[in-house]
Design a binder for these strands. Structure first.
Lengths: 210, 210
DNA sequence: GAAAAAACCATGGTAAACCATTAGAAATAA
DNA sequence: TTATTTCTAATGGTTTACCATGGTTTTTTC
């Protein structure tokens, strides 16, 4: 049934409908062995233990961000091709994803042919970008400014801030000194050029960093 | 090939992936003749000229809102069952859709069985609601609580706070004393049972008060 | 294994937010 | 026209956030 030179393709998406759609779409191409997951962590488990050629990765997952999973996958298995699949048309997120090692990005409104062609592109060593993604990337958007890169800790602190925790609470939660938390706060404000925490959270949420 | 008692089912969704997914899902049920559209207007055209039993209608469409299309479909063909399909988990949108004559609402994270069962329900004269939709409608979600009524001034202050203004800035903007602004802040915190401004803004945005 | 980045902690200070209570004037509803 | 709510403002105090700077240790990266 399966040929030896079949490619192992993993799909990760927590929308069963999309999962089903991609599956039926790609089954028509007869060169893929397809494995589907609804959780990023499960897929990661699989990829760690089984040779995986291609991953189609939803950016918004119930158990974490596709951005992180992309990075993790690339760490575990650098040769695996990772293509982002998302509704998120945010310029910044596309760039962040590619920065994290992604081999391409496809919007969910792409049609069948486009998807197939993108994947073929990626297989041949190219970059897989759906038409609309290309437009977004080229669009010299003045509205979105260069988003700062956050460290793990900063991300954690930011998330705590966003749910309304005070420095004391965050310190307790992360087992660090209040002073350290305040340092992170200051760095976050500077990185985002925000004048207070509310502005910070606003910018972060607008850019889907939380 | 097609039996006479097959049901004509129209899918409208501008995401080819979802379209494909629903198609392959419903093809397994052998009682449907399936017609797929990516534009609401095209589907409406079809429905006007061809007997249609069921419509699965995406709420977010490129050429208009599913809410409107639902209403139009029901005008042209009142007996057609219209089921909303969306990522939008907003309580208000679900209710508005049903108000517009919709026979059900399914979130895109529903799984295959759930979708099939919902549609069966609708065919048998029932209402088609996926599990999560039911929860949202019942308000079992602890996140939505009795919202406080805000005065005009409080609303203005809240909006200013949400964009990151300080009390001094708000005072200047509204031509009132800083002290007054701080009073409003305190009242807002109490009304929302929030412990700081970030929590306040979070609750307010979650409940679409801003 | 050296260089760089990230995480940690500190001092000392200013500004802003948060808390409790009171209270008069103006708008609104009964 | 009362009664109620809203808007306004105040005193006086506590807590938290924000600012500038500098230093140590751990982790990552080359």
């Amino acid at each position: 049934m399966y040929k030896n030179d079949d490619l192992n393709l993993v799909i990760v998406d927590d929308h069963p409908m999309v999962l089903e759609g991609l599956k039926s779409l790609l089954h028509q191409e007869e060169k893929f062995r397809i494995f589907a997951f609804t959780k990023g962590s499960s897929a990661l488990d699989f990829i760690q233990e089984n040779k995986t050629d291609i991953v189609l990765l939803d950016i918004v997952l119930s158990d974490g961000s596709g951005l992180n999973f992309c990075q993790l996958i690339k760490q575990k298995s650098p040769k695996t091709i990772v293509i982002g699949i998302s509704n998120q048309a945010e310029r910044s997120i596309i760039f962040r994803f590619l920065e994290n090692g992604g081999n391409g990005y496809i919007l969910k409104n792409a049609d069948a042919d486009e998807i197939i062609q993108c994947i073929d592109n990626a297989i041949n060593g190219g970059i897989a970008l759906s038409k609309e993604v290309q437009e977004i990337m080229l669009c010299t958007a003045s509205n979105s400014f260069e988003l700062p890169r956050l460290t793990k800790r900063e991300q954690q602190v930011l998330e705590s801030i966003a749910i309304g925790n005070t420095s004391a609470e965050i310190a307790e939660k992360l087992f660090i000194s209040i002073i350290t938390v305040e340092t992170h706060r200051r760095n976050l404000l500077q990185k985002f050029k925000a004048k207070n925490m509310i502005e910070l959270v606003k910018i972060a949420t607008e850019n889907k960093l939380i």
